Amino acid sequence: MNVSAWSIRNPIPAVMLFVLLTFGGLLSFNAMKVQNFPDIDLPTVTVSAALPGASPSQLETDVARKLENSIATVTGLKHITTKVQDGAVTLIIEFRLEKPVQEAVDDVRSAVQRVRADLPADVRDPVITKLDFAAQPVLAFTIASSKMDDQSLSWFVDNDVTKKLLALPGVGAVNRVGGVTRQVHVDLDPARLQALGATASDISRQLRLVQTESAGGRTDLSGSEQPVRTLATVRSADALRDIQIPLSDGRRIRLDQVARITDTIAQPRAAALLDGRPVVGFEVARSRGQSEVAVGALIQQALLELRAQHPDIQLTEAFNFVEPVQEEYDGSLHLLYEGAILAV
């Protein structure tokens, strides 16, 4: 049967089919997400293990080699890349492309569990994740204020900025870069400990019980059943000074009798620089399957609202991976329109 001849004799069905295909194409085009690279799953798994205070040589012998030997038995393995640094080990396990991603993750997790008991007791539980290209940041900003210091700015980013941006659809993660982290230091005095007959383990054991909240069951109160919780928290460093430390001989001492407690900041392990100056910044990553252009527009709008609510802050764009994507998208549409016109 000649389709062309039939369409000429019966133009209405052919026109209707063309209209339906055009309408479906327009709907599909509008539903497409604008991204620099498509969301792809590569069978690559990352294993991270931490042992604070350990040297690279100790980590290589006690952690890295044991994990490598166990993971090496997994089928479909292609490469293992290990990075060892002070207090941390990172393994990047690459499988052949035909290996399903979830199967690769499950196989690596099983291999790690087989040697978990052979690792040092102080090693934190290894974190196993698959490689996700969508988790890469698309926007980064630095923040400054005439009324806040680095500690206040860091808390402002962790609390206000992060909450506002994570509430936007399509935002997958907000990570602070640079700044400082609040930390309470408890510096023990060995001479006082010896004079009072206390040990560092007594102090450590009691401090582990601080900041604890646990369920305590239920009770009847005024004819209704209410949940009961056990609260053992302190709200400030001053309250921490008054904590009672029970000793093995039955005596009790206050924490400030054997230690100096200071509310300060943690030692910086990383720094963010802009034009050679230390700054406080944050990076924003999109969620998987979301449009970089749409998410970038929502982020910019949210930051404008944040500036209006806090006139004292100044936000500076450090890098923007959304604009190149928008330019490439606009250029592609321009070429598409030119081709359609020339074809007609």
Rank of each mutant, 00 (worst) to 15 (best):
S4A: 15
M16Q: 06
M16S: 06
M16I: 09
L17G: 13
F18M: 15
V19R: 02
T22I: 01
F23P: 03
G24P: 08
M32I: 12
N36Y: 11
I40C: 07
D41Y: 10
V45M: 00
T46G: 07
L51P: 00
P52Q: 14
A54Q: 06
A54S: 15
S55H: 05
L59A: 01
L59Y: 09
L59N: 12
D62H: 02
A64C: 12
R65G: 04
N69D: 15
N69H: 09
T75S: 14
T75H: 09
L77G: 08
K83E: 15
K83V: 14
Q85H: 08
Q85S: 13
D86Q: 09
V89P: 10
T90A: 04
I92N: 07
I93G: 10
L97G: 10
V101C: 11
Q102S: 10
E103A: 05
E103I: 02
Q113Y: 03
R114E: 09
V123P: 08
K130D: 11
A134E: 01
A134P: 02
P137D: 12
F141L: 03
I143Y: 03
D149I: 02
S152L: 04
S152M: 07
F156P: 01
N159L: 05
D160E: 13
K163S: 08
L168K: 04
V177W: 08
T181Y: 04
V184M: 06
V184N: 00
D187T: 13
L188A: 15
D189K: 13
L193H: 05
A198T: 13
R205V: 06
R208A: 09
V210C: 00
T212P: 01
G216Q: 02
E225Y: 02
V228D: 02
R235I: 02
S236D: 07
A237C: 08
D238W: 00
R241C: 07
L247C: 00
L247S: 08
R252I: 12
I253C: 02
D256N: 14
D256Y: 04
R260T: 10
I261D: 00
L273C: 10
L273K: 11
D275M: 14
D275F: 13
P278Y: 08
P278S: 11
E283Q: 06
A285H: 04
S291D: 08
V293Q: 07
V295R: 00
L298W: 06
Q301A: 14
Q301L: 05
R307M: 01
H310W: 04
P311R: 08
T316N: 12
F319L: 06
F319P: 08
F321H: 11
Q326P: 01
Y329N: 12
G331R: 07
S332Y: 15
S332L: 13
L333C: 05
Y337N: 09
E338K: 01
V344F: 15
